[in-house]
Design a protein around this nucleic acid. Structure first.
Lengths: 336, 336
DNA sequence: CTGAAAGCGCTTACAG
DNA sequence: CTGAAAGCGCTTACAG
């Protein structure tokens, strides 16, 4: 039950409490002798500054609030780990809030979050309301949306170029000889889902094709599986572009369950390139969202806002790339 | 840039600052009239108590430090989400620290963590040193190890019954007609890895069998894959018990890559029952660690320690169960 | 460089 | 029930 304070260290070292504080404050002035005495006393007593007290007086908690909702999709644990590492390296830590997947739920979670005087907020793949965004701005807390754009000019966000990615995927499918192309879309209530669906439609249109069908898979495994089941009954598409890898795995499972072979009887492309996509059992051709670059951009953007206090929103789009694996049948001589 | 304080609310409501504090302190006494006035003023000003200030004076931050290391293994994101939900429901939140997988790394991370005056620490699948455990105890911060036992009587932990589970898995393999049974073990530097390996050995021994082979897969996908490759070259085992599902997926991929069929040419059993184990492409027979019950136990144990201050360590083991799927060849008439 | 002092935003005895 | 006051453990002008 210790909790050694700076005052005790000061007494032991024979200096003032302020001196102790300065020794532990980067950039503060203290003579070599003082530093030496204080460090020794602190060491002996096992003293470490109380981060919360420091946060209260300095107004900087060095805590970043992270709101997440879809941990079952491997993209998010990966992002979480990278985010945490990057932030830890800068002396920040993540206070994590799991949110129900509704704007109301997210709003109340973010309100809680602000009570902790977080220095910034990262909302991963969830939407928040404009009033709440306003409140965050008034409180001087920068918010960055990760992997989720949002209409209204008030948000900073980092996404990949979803529309362009979906277009390229679709064009690749067309170029490799597919003509009956379906889309199991990401949730149409989300910007990412809509952008990908638009890219899909645009690429088809400009090739003079019509979609075989477009259905909303809601970024949900069970729903995507059901969509796939329907699609492969009767007249089948020759390719399915799926709104993310997490759903694409379900689609592959259904295709095989129906006795068909992905990449032969029917082509499947995902979106994300989560680690499992490269595993033997799935071997999924997919569009890579470069999560490491997205994380880097998110962290720099957020820290820049925190340190400079710039409130103007900034929207960053990272380029993705097509990752060729076995789930797509290639026509002869096709270069993607 | 607001940050409304209790003093401003007090002025607006025409009461003292202490009165405002009482209105926001559950169990404190305030007249209906005061509550009413304060609530209205707070509402209009958008006041919310500063959690950090409260934490400093009360000594309770309502923050739980969580140390994690293996987010690529789906077991941990699942646990993280459940943990976060359960803790949120009790008014606690998780400050997350990603740790390098070494005792030194974990120690330094936990020391950082304690600077945040966390009320408790959950260390998921990592080991910490005894000196650090002592420091945590002296600071009055309860620590619970999740899914990782540790020698030395100083730690509370919650695991599943690893040894018993591994025994039952192995016995099941024997009963279903397998005789050349190999074990790709979990990391032998960890208690869970050793317990499972011991259970395996014990079950074989009591059936008068010897292991086909035992190798350390280190809970690592690439290493497990390499182990599998070696195992299926030349004289093969007829079954492989793998130390966790994450490695088992790699083993299944390798078996198929060699042109063999899991559940027919060779049986595979995992440990954990992560969501992917039930997905069509893997359809993995495995030992379920009931993650929800493990999480519940962890949270109750931790909160009990926080609220009562009991320091005595407590070791909780949760029973698991065998989940039958397609990756094991069943002998005729075998009931697991 | 260094100490005394004020103050960060709260909670909590202590009197009334 | 309620207000004035002390104090949680720090940082940071302010004088020296």
């Amino acid at each position: 039950m210790s909790k050694v304070t700076s005052l005790e260290v000061a007494r032991k070292a024979g200096v003032s409490q302020s001196a102790v504080s300065r020794v532990f404050t980067p950039g503060a002035s203290a003579s070599a002798k003082t530093v030496e005495k204080v460090k020794r006393a602190a060491e002996e007593l096992g003293y470490r500054p109380n981060v919360l007290a420091r946060a209260m007086v300095s107004g900087k908690s060095r805590i970043i609030g992270l709101v997440v909702a879809y941990l079952e999709n491997q993209f998010y644990p990966v992002a979480l780990e990278l985010l945490s590492n990057a932030l830890q390296a800068e002396g920040y830590h993540i206070l994590i809030f799991t949110a129900p997947n509704s704007t109301d739920g997210v709003d109340s979670v973010i309100a809680d979050l602000m009570d902790y005087q977080v220095d910034g907020i990262i909302a991963a793949s969830v939407s928040m309301s404009s009033p709440l965004a306003t409140r965050a701005r008034e409180a001087g807390i920068p918010v960055v949306l990760f992997n989720r754009g949002q209409d209204g000019g008030d948000f900073s966000h980092v996404t990949s170029a979803n529309r362009a990615g979906a277009e390229k995927v679709t064009r690749f499918l067309i170029n490799s000889g597919h003509r009956r192309i379906a889309h199991i879309a990401g949730w149409q209530g989300s910007q990412t889902g809509r952008d990908r669906a638009e890219g899909f439609q645009a690429a088809l249109a400009s090739a003079g094709l019509r979609p075989f069908s477009v259905v909303d898979g809601m970024y949900n495994r069970a729903i995507a599986a059901e969509c796939a089941r329907q699609l492969i009954t009767g007249t089948r598409p020759d390719a399915i572009f799926v709104g993310n890898d997490h759903m694409a795995f379900a689609v592959l499972d259904e295709i095989r369950a129906a006795g068909l072979t992905p990449g032969k009887d029917i082509s499947v492309v995902g979106f994300d390139d989560v680690p499992q996509a490269s595993w033997g059992a799935y071997d999924l051709t997919t569009w890579r969202q470069p999560v490491n670059r997205m994380v880097d951009a998110t962290v720099s953007l957020l820290l820049e806002r925190i340190e400079t206090g710039t409130p103007a929103p900034k929207k960053i789009e990272i380029e993705g790339e097509l990752i060729l694996r076995g789930s797509v049948r290639l026509a002869e001589g096709v270069a993607p």
